[in-house]
Design a binder for these strands. Sequence first.
DNA 1: CCGGGCGCTGTAATCGTTTCCAGGAAGCGC
DNA 2: GCGCTTCCTGGAAACGATTACAGCGCCCGG
Lengths: 341, 341
Amino acid sequence: MAHRATLTQVAQRAGVSIASASRALNGLVASPATVDKVRRAADDLGYVPDASARALKMGATGQITFAVDDIGNPVYVEMMTGVQEVVAASGFRLQVTATGGTRDVADVLDLLRSMRRGYADGLVLSPLRVTAELVAEIAATPIPVVVIGRLPDGAGVDTVMTDSARGVALAVEHLHAQGRRRIAFLNGPGDTTPGAARRRGFDDAVAHLDVVASTHEAADFTMAAGREAAHRILTAAGRPVDAIVAANDLLAIGALHAAHDLGLDVPGRLAVTGVDDTSLAEIVHPPLTSVSLDSRRRGQLAAELLTRRIEDPTRAPQVLSVPPLLHVRGSSAPTPQAGNR
Amino acid sequence: MAHRATLTQVAQRAGVSIASASRALNGLVASPATVDKVRRAADDLGYVPDASARALKMGATGQITFAVDDIGNPVYVEMMTGVQEVVAASGFRLQVTATGGTRDVADVLDLLRSMRRGYADGLVLSPLRVTAELVAEIAATPIPVVVIGRLPDGAGVDTVMTDSARGVALAVEHLHAQGRRRIAFLNGPGDTTPGAARRRGFDDAVAHLDVVASTHEAADFTMAAGREAAHRILTAAGRPVDAIVAANDLLAIGALHAAHDLGLDVPGRLAVTGVDDTSLAEIVHPPLTSVSLDSRRRGQLAAELLTRRIEDPTRAPQVLSVPPLLHVRGSSAPTPQAGNR
DNA sequence: CCGGGCGCTGTAATCGTTTCCAGGAAGCGC
DNA sequence: GCGCTTCCTGGAAACGATTACAGCGCCCGG
């Protein structure tokens, strides 16, 4: 807990003015002799420039904020990794803020408002729910914002999206090709952006296929909610479903558990697919077929958009998209009798 | 991207001096009339105080940094959650920095040095490896640091530890009580702090038990490394082991996979236990018996120590400890046919 | 020998806040 | 009416850095 040296002290010790000291340290015009003296003095004192003072003077903090709704979900961890990679490479520091639970949209508004204090030079945001208020607040934020997700058309904000509707369709088509004909869709809350998109994808996909389809909503994008909802699906009266398409990996894993609880063989009696292709997909048994939306890549792209916009705030807003990709694993294996486990 | 209003503008609009404006907004002495005028002006202009300027003047940023080695491990996510809870409640903002991969200790030193720039008012650190250099650098850091883990005695740093050696012993004793007698310890890198402690715990525990014990090291605290090492353990010549004690959940899950690859029934032929009791333990099948070190609680405690020290930097350094707790689940069920859960 | 240009330096202003200090206007008791 | 306290206010100095500007010495050509 030693005390910090200031530029004034360095200048004093080197016997020059603070202006010269600053110039010497920043590689601006200065005689070799001065540079040498100042360098030595700075080293002796262990001088490091103060971030707040520099930020105040320069009008830039060198920080970027990533706001995430639910740190518990590995998806966001992966996104964060992607963001961090790019952000660190550009010389920024990453600041992560958890905007509370999934239920509260007020939190993220608070965050946006607090950004006006100038904590960071840019913000990456991945909101679960998009309201008009949110869009307005983003527009009013004095620093560049990049959204991972989907905003209303013409929002004029840099965005990285993915076609998760198409992703769900990929899963449905895959299951259909494997001969599954009674497919249930296990969605998260329908009023969230991903919930709405994935439901649309499911509906569109089943519309032109000869399958018996049904849709169900879990209370949350969590494993517990998925397990509970899957129980309902699997114990409902009538002919049993032979496949569950879950809107995300956590829900899918909940479905795997429900199947196990009920003694249903996966993939023999029931196929299950997830979305996000998180690390969890390879951890469970049977390994989970899942649609990758490449969260890490989305994080990288978002960070790139952001750093580019910080450099040149006049750029036209850009919308990038990452295509979904189906990863087939054991949970949707073609034939029952392959019988792993 | 509207431009930001400054206190000067607010004061002008309210027709008072900036001193009065500042006082009015901060609830210091000011007449009701002034407060009213200033409030109104501030609202009109959408004024929010600038963080950098305030930080410069006050010498405090209102930020706390949490440095984590490996965001991929759910343990750290849980710790982060705990830290965030306390930190947010105290009015600080949390900044998370990933200090690269597990292999590089230089990173965390860089981070510590960069803290001297005054980015934050405090730092929570959970280092995987502790070197003399690290301890020295911590001592030289101008802001309070709290370490989650274990430092050399007398380091004089606030610390939150857990008795992970005892934790491993709990697992061993449990397995012994269930009748397991040929127990393998699946450790991560032995040169890490947790690796060393857990190995010690294992050695001590088996020393006074009638078991055949062996120790093995995986390259990393990851599932892939655990699977690979467990393969070696399970295919070694001689009488087969009937239990694997893994040094963490990821390794344990790797072992579950290896067992499955080899067609070994868990818990029938082989019991497996993990450490950390992460959310993954309940995701796998059979659910993993694991020793909880309550990462979230450790995060909370660390954050509390930190905020308290920030308030009063003269406090004597404190070392807190969280006791390990064994959570028995299916992967170590007593008898194959009991099949609980 | 003198003036212009060049290279380097120091003084001082500035970023947006907070806060010390001095001073003015009331209010009060006498 | 006078002195005192009380309350509020504005001016100005910080915090630690960057940087515009002016000034200094020196070299060089004419």
